[in-house]
């Protein structure tokens, strides 16, 4: 057992102080130490995208970072997006266009797409397929996810 490392970061807009063994992955810290279970653990080697979160506004794999590495950064998880009563337009679009079935991959897709749509307000279907190339969904076959993103872009431009 190694000593615990101390760290401080902004988590979903609030200052957070914590400690963990250096080997603890950020996604495991978020899920097990804080209880934010929205970020999912799929492959643990950066392929599936289920653990995608935002660090300083950029989509990153929280399974390929140690919790201690969040020190000094701005971390956002899917829990920051919307509430049941006031969903993010992207979440609304996923619901309306049936962009999910089992939902395991959905948080990763959402956190990949939030910064993407901020940068690309009018993406083509092909652009979207490239943007989500780092996220795996085993249910939908992707078509309804692409539809959802197109719908979200329309909503966010309205």
């Amino acid at each position: 057992m190694t000593d615990k490392a101390q760290f401080q970061f902004t988590l979903n807009g609030k200052e957070h102080t914590g400690e963990a063994e250096p080997r603890l992955l950020l996604v495991d810290y978020l899920r097990h130490e804080i209880g934010l279970t929205g970020s999912h653990v799929g492959c643990e080697h950066g392929v599936c995208g289920a653990c995608t979160i935002l660090m300083d506004g950029q989509a990153v794999r929280s399974c390929l970072m140690f919790a201690v590495q969040a020190d000094g950064h701005d971390v956002r998880t899917v829990e920051s997006l919307g509430t049941m009563d006031a969903m993010h337009p992207l979440q609304e679009a996923f619901r309306e266009a049936h962009g999910l079935q089992c939902g395991f991959c959905t948080p990763g897709f959402l956190m990949t797409l939030v910064p993407y749509l901020e940068e690309h307000s009018n993406p083509s279907e092909d652009d979207i397929r490239h943007a989500i190339s780092g996220n795996i969904c085993r249910c939908t076959g992707y078509q309804h996810i692409v539809d959802a993103v197109l719908l979200a872009a329309r909503k966010m431009n309205a």
Partner: peptide, 9 residues
């Protein structure tokens, strides 16, 4: 190189 999320890091 890999995926956008990987290239961000």
């Amino acid at each position: 190189v890999a995926h956008p999320q990987i290239r961000n890091r």
